[in-house]
C-alpha cells in the first residue's frame, strides 16, 4: 500500500515535472537556451486560469484556452526581452536575465493576484476520491499523467503533422538548412518559447486543483523540472518525459520508504551520480566532438 500510493503520487507529480521539462527541451533544442524561470510560467498558467474561472466566471474550457494563449505571449516576451538581446551577441547573460524576468513576473503576480494562496475549485467531473489498488486517489491524479502523456503526444503530433511543427523540427536539426527552406529562424525560436511556456502553463492548470494558486507556487517545480530535463538528456523529448516520471516516482518512494528527511538529499545525489555515469543524461545523445 505504501508503495502503491507512492507510485500513484509519483507518477502524477512526475508527469508535471515532465511537462515543464519538455519546455526546457523545446527551447534548448531550437536555440540552445533555456528559460530558467520556467516555474514562473507554470505559476502564470494557474493564476490566469484562476482569474478567468473564479474571478471572472468564464467557462473552464474558455478560461484554459485564454490562459494558455497568455502563457504563449509570456514566452514570446521572455524570448524578446531576456534571450534574444543576449544570444544575438553570443553572451551567456540570458541565463541571469531569465532569472531576473522570473523575479519580476513572480512579484507582479504577488501584487496583482494577491498575497494569499487561493484554492482552485476541482472540476465537478473529477471531484471526490476513487480507490485504485486499495489506495484512495483523486481522479485528477489519474488524469494528470494521462493528460501529461497526451500533451507530449500532442507535441509529437504537432511537430510531425503541422507546418509550424515541422519548421520547428527543421530548425532543431539544422538551423542553416531550415533558413534555406525559407523558415524564419528567429520566429521559430520565439514560437519555441511560446510552446515551452504553454506546456508549463498547462502543467500549472492541471495541478492547480490539487495544489494552491499563489505567486511562489512554481519556483521549486521549475528547479526540479530542470533537474529532470538534464537527467533525461535535454536533447531527447521522450527521455525528458520518462525522466520526469522516474524522478517523481523516486521522490515519492524515498519519502514513503525512507522518510521525508531524505527525499531531497537522495534525489539530488542520484542526479549527480547519474550525470557522472552518463554525462549527457540518461537518454541524451553524446555531442560529436569535431576537430
Amino acid at each position: 500500500m505504501l508503495v502503491t500510493s507512492a507510485l500513484i503520487s509519483g507518477l502524477g507529480l512526475g508527469s508535471m515535472y515532465g511537462l515543464l521539462a519538455l519546455g526546457f527541451y523545446i527551447t534548448y533544442s531550437v536555440s540552445n537556451t533555456v528559460n530558467f524561470s520556467q516555474g514562473s510560467s507554470m505559476m502564470l498558467g494557474a493564476v490566469f486560469a484562476y482569474a478567468f474561472t473564479v474571478t471572472m466566471g468564464w467557462p473552464l474550457a474558455l478560461a484554459v484556452v485564454a490562459s494558455l494563449a497568455l502563457c504563449a505571449a509570456y514566452g514570446i516576451v521572455v524570448e524578446w526581452v531576456a534571450i534574444r538581446p543576449f544570444a544575438r551577441r553570443g553572451s551567456n547573460a540570458w541565463l541571469m536575465a531569465t532569472v531576473a524576468i522570473g523575479i519580476v513576473a513572480d512579484n507582479l503576480v504577488l501584487f496583482t493576484f494577491g498575497k494569499e494562496p487561493r484554492g482552485f475549485p476541482m472540476p465537478g467531473l473529477l471531484s471526490g476520491s476513487i480507490k485504485v489498488f486499495g489506495v484512495g486517489v483523486s481522479p485528477l491524479q489519474i488524469a494528470i499523467p494521462i493528460a501529461g502523456l497526451a500533451m507530449a503526444g500532442l507535441l509529437h503530433a504537432f511537430s510531425r503533422r503541422t507546418r509550424l511543427g515541422k519548421a520547428l523540427l527543421a530548425v532543431v536539426q539544422n538551423r542553416d538548412a531550415a533558413s534555406l527552406m525559407g523558415i524564419n529562424v528567429g520566429f521559430a525560436i520565439s514560437a519555441a518559447f511560446a510552446v515551452s511556456t504553454v506546456f508549463a502553463g498547462a502543467a500549472g492548470i492541471l495541478i492547480a486543483p490539487l495544489f494552491n494558486v499563489h505567486s511562489d507556487m512554481g519556483t521549486l517545480f521549475g528547479l526540479k523540472a530542470f533537474a529532470v530535463a538534464i537527467l533525461g538528456g535535454i536533447t531527447s523529448a521522450w527521455g525528458v518525459m520518462i525522466a520526469g516520471l522516474l524522478f517523481g516516482v523516486i521522490e515519492a518512494l524515498v519519502t514513503a520508504l525512507l522518510g521525508s528527511s531524505y527525499t531531497q538529499i537522495v534525489t539530488f545525489s542520484l542526479v549527480i551520480v547519474a550525470l557522472a555515469i552518463r554525462p549527457n543524461g540518461l537518454f541524451g545523445r553524446a555531442e560529436v566532438k569535431k576537430v
Binding site: M1, S5, A6, I8, S9, G12, I207
Partner: peptide, 9 residues
C-alpha cells in the same frame, strides 16, 4: 502537492 506518502507512513 501530495503529502500522501508521509501520511501513509
Amino acid at each position: 502537492v501530495d503529502v500522501v506518502p508521509q501520511l501513509t507512513r
